[in-house]
Design a protein around this nucleic acid. Structure first.
Length: 469
RNA sequence: GCUCCCAUCGUCUAGCGGUCUAGGACGUCGCCCUCUCACGGCGAAAACAGGGGUUCGAGUCCCCUUGGGAGUACCA
């Protein structure tokens, strides 16, 4: 049997991380099985669906690199199919018209609830022969009264429902438009979906969908219901937990590989391995091993994983993602050091690309001011004299290399009988504006002779002016 | 309320009847390394929700309780 999986979001907002994880699992499964992965946009709710949301979902999937094998399917383009299959069910007696008003249904539910029963439609229109004049009927699926409907979920195991718990649900509204549980069934059927991998908020819909599938004469797919992702506090994930949209993780400086890695590990594990490349996920992920219970989102672990990827990924790949941040920050790297070299030098101390951007700006733009704390701590005592010595030493250098600059720094420290910190820190502040940078030899080599000397000279001027005042 | 699902350190997890005085990771806290920030190294605190069974033996199987979650729409 050929495998086809799908990701079927409704375009009512951005792609959130819970959706991203189900999409990832679907994608992984399809790729592992040599099958197809397709995207279906469930936009039948015209009130809430928006064009921007469709784009946001597409953008999120693209950023994560979860590419689909076909153009997305839009449910709004398939109304004729839903209509045709509704008619088929009507003709075969699996569905019938119901003329009950919304008020009538509401009182029915209230009564049931008051009596401690489950609010269900009682099937009063099942055998109605004559239409009610002036009422546009809905179409209901005739659900079996006894027996049970069960399925073997790849993640949850066997799940059994008593058919008497399931009432006759509406598959087409009074205006003829189809409802969710019906469109899902029709599409999964006609798109040839073999494995339905979706959030476990759908387990309760599954038995109904199976019944409709069977009434349609379709093969029932294999189901895998993946647990939800909870917020840090263990409560349902929502806006107040901060970033839930996938693209905001890009904005915050995470690599898609890291988010994917975090997501795959949330609810699944492979021995003691924590860091997975895309290929490793493909090699080791097993949908059957996914945890049954919901997991809480842990931002600090995401940060750690991001750092791991930042350090192990090919710098050229990192640059692809970093470039976006550089552009956002308005940093032009064309006149400064090779960004690849900057990445190699910075990545062990930067957990996100945003941090890397902030900490690397000085390589491309001379500091316009010095951080107060740094000035207070390092631009004191004989800092000006130290910098003057250094500048002389640098100028005398026949060739500019990190090692050569380092030797000058050491020489000055020894001559003045100072610890290395007392010499290196003033340089840092002079060239970067703050007290933090990669090792001083690396920093200076990357920065280049001209910038180093100019900036130190400027710092000396700054100190002279300050001390004169 | 009813139906369905779930339950090991704060968090993500390993564990698939004896090797568990419960392992790893993030985070936290010490110490070491050190020109800054980091990286790294070493170490510490930290969990089987509770109660019944089954069994020679239960974190592991069964039941109940408790606690979470989902669904219960002419939303998806």
């Amino acid at each position: 049997m050929s495998v086809t999986t799908r990701f079927a979001p409704s375009p009512t907002g951005y792609l959130h991380i819970g959706g991203a994880r189900t999409a990832l699992y679907s994608w992984l499964y399809a790729r592992q099985q040599g099958g197809r992965f397709v995207l279906r946009i469930e936009d039948t709710d015209r009130e809430r669906s928006t064009e921007e949301s469709v784009q946001a979902i597409l953008d999120g999937m693209a950023w994560l690199g979860l590419e689909a094998d076909e153009a997305p399917v839009f449910q709004t383009a398939r109304f004729d199919r839903y209509k045709a299959l509704t008619q088929q069910l009507l003709d075969s007696g699996h569905a019938y018209h119901c003329y009950c008003s919304k008020d009538e249904l509401e009182t029915m539910r209230e009564e049931a609830r008051a009596a401690g029963r489950k609010p269900m439609y009682d099937g009063r229109c099942r055998d109605r022969k004559e239409p009610v004049p002036g009422v546009e009927p809905v179409v209901r699926f005739r659900s079996p009264d006894d027996g049970e409907t069960a399925f073997d979920d790849l993640i949850k195991g066997r799940v059994v429902f008593q058919n008497k718990e399931l009432d006759d649900l509406i598959i087409a509204r009074g205006d003829g438009t189809p409802t969710y549980n019906f469109t899902v069934v029709v599409d999964d059927y006609e798109m040839g979906i073999s494995h339905v991998i979706r959030g476990d908020d759908h387990v309760n819909n599954t038995p109904r969908q199976i019944q409709i599938l069977e009434a349609l004469g379709a093969t029932v797919p294999v189901y895998a219901h993946v647990p939800m992702i909870l917020g840090e506090d263990g409560k349902r994930l929502s806006k107040r937990h901060g970033a839930v949209g996938v693209m905001s993780y890009r904005d915050e400086g995470y690599l898609p590989e890291a988010l994917l890695n975090y997501l795959v590990r949330l609810g699944w594990s492979h021995g003691d391995q924590e860091v997975f490349t895309r290929d490793e996920m493909l090699a080791h992920f097993r949908i059957e091993q996914v945890q049954k219970g919901a997991g809480a989102f842990n931002p600090s672990k995401l940060v750690w994983i991001n750092h791991q990827h930042l350090q192990s990924m090919d710098p050229a790949q990192v640059l692809k993602h970093w470039q976006w941040h550089l552009d956002q920050a308005g940093i032009d790297v064309s006149q400064g050091p090779d960004p690849i070299a900057v990445i190699e030098s910075q990545r062990e101390r930067c957990k996100t690309l945003v941090e890397m951007t902030d900490k690397s700006r000085f390589f491309y733009e001379a500091p316009t001011e010095y951080a107060d704390k740094a000035v207070k701590k390092w631009f004191k005592g004989d800092a000006q004299a130290v910098l003057t010595d250094l500048l002389e030493g640098f100028k005398a250098l026949p060739e500019w290399t990190g090692a050569a600059a380092h030797a000058v720094v050491h020489g000055v420290a020894e001559r003045r009988e100072l610890g290395l910190g007392k010499v290196a820190q003033p340089i840092r502040v002079a060239v970067s504006g703050d007290a933090v940078s990669p090792p001083i030899d690396e920093t200076l080599e990357l920065l280049g002779r001209e910038q180093t000397e100019t900036r130190i000279a400027r710092a000396i001027e700054f100190l002279a002016a300050r001390d004169a005042a």
